[in-house]
Design a protein around this nucleic acid. Structure first.
Lengths: 195, 195
DNA sequence: TTGTACATGTAAAGGGTTACATGATTCC
DNA sequence: GGAATCATGTAACCCTTTACATGTACAA
């Protein structure tokens, strides 16, 4: 921070959008055209670390258009209405500004499965083992999902976007890590039970 | 459940509590006595995969006491008020019932850092590298925190509660996995940049 | 005496999802 | 002809956090 040439009170000149709006902006930039398509793309790309509901998408699109960051036009399919969007130069800049902005990035995890495991010493050992198994199975399912997406990510990578593959690898790595810990602990616990 | 003397339509006899209430119940069972203490314990144990604010804790304690799952009594420290709680046999049973209940356990992760990384192909390569570095640093810090807690978890384990150590190991494993992926990708990207 | 920790309580605001509403198109 | 998919819009609800309010004890 230089601080020297700043005026004492500095109101933010450009309105700072909320994260969902930036997500929508980013998805339009990556080629999602309609609100419906954005929802689908989110589900098969970032849903592992970010979700967004329809009820957020359409108002976000409206806001982005009002502030000139995207431009939309009607492009109906037959008689079915449809509004498609593309990012404006201003939108491109604002997306970069957000990406580069240094801001707190809390890693927010909410997992009832892990909470239950934390308290699992209150259970019968066999029940605790079943719970552990359920948590492991969940990660295995998720891992299978993620590995399926690899094909798409590889295609996206060839088209010049290498970072979706990075976040995919993170997801894979970290469910693998979960599974490994589950397996280790299950073994230790089963030894302890048989003693 | 005997079932015979029940009326045809069977409304849930025992009210199903929300997760925060079960978390509070579980913490009281593990030895947290006051609301204040519960908050502290959560911060140094499960905050990595579950948070709970003061504004949820006190009403939860009230609810748990009303439904007979915990029992409280005033135990002031000098002139400073303080209400301490302990789990009743009914509370013990209800906690187990919740732990054993098979219910969906969504793994909910919300991470602006990963979202930004996903879109990072829109940045200058150097900026993207900085962002990656920031995400890696964040996991390194978190890892250090978690490793610090190990001592406490080890003590808890000796006292007969092995599962807090399990969830701690999960946290450690999965930030290590994140760091590893960051390092790998950084190397690949730096090679690509120098070409 | 001033700041920090202990201790509880709650109103208001915020952010998000669910659910409903509407209608066209396509596939079986 | 009916179900699933495409497509948009929004009101109501729910959960959670933030912020404020109040007061004691203790250490620097």
């Amino acid at each position: 921070m230089t601080g020297m040439e700043e005026t004492p009170t500095r109101p933010p000149l450009e309105p700072v959008l909320a994260t969902p709006a930036y997500v929508v902006l980013g998805m339009v930039r990556l080629g999602s055209r309609s609100g419906y398509e954005i929802k689908q793309t989110v589900e098969q790309s970032i849903r592992f670390f970010w979700t967004i509901s329809q009820a957020q998408i359409y108002p976000s699109l409206e806001l982005l258009e009002r502030t000139g960051l995207i431009e939309g036009r009607e492009e109906p399919q037959g008689r079915r209405r449809r509004r498609v969007f593309q990012v404006t130069p201003a939108g491109e800049r604002e997306l970069e500004r957000w990406l580069e902005r240094e801001e707190p990035m809390p890693f927010e995890l909410r997992d009832v499965g892990m909470v239950k495991l934390f308290f699992a010493d209150a259970m019968e050992p066999e029940s605790a083992a079943r719970l552990l198994q359920a948590v492991q199975a969940r990660s295995e399912e998720r891992l299978a999902d993620l590995e399926q997406i690899s094909e798409v990510a590889l295609q996206v990578e060839r088209e010049g976007n290498a970072h979706p593959m990075l976040t995919l690898r993170m997801g894979i790595a970290f469910h693998r890590a979960m599974i490994e810990v589950c397996e280790q602990f299950a073994e230790e616990a089963s030894l302890a039970r048989s003693r």
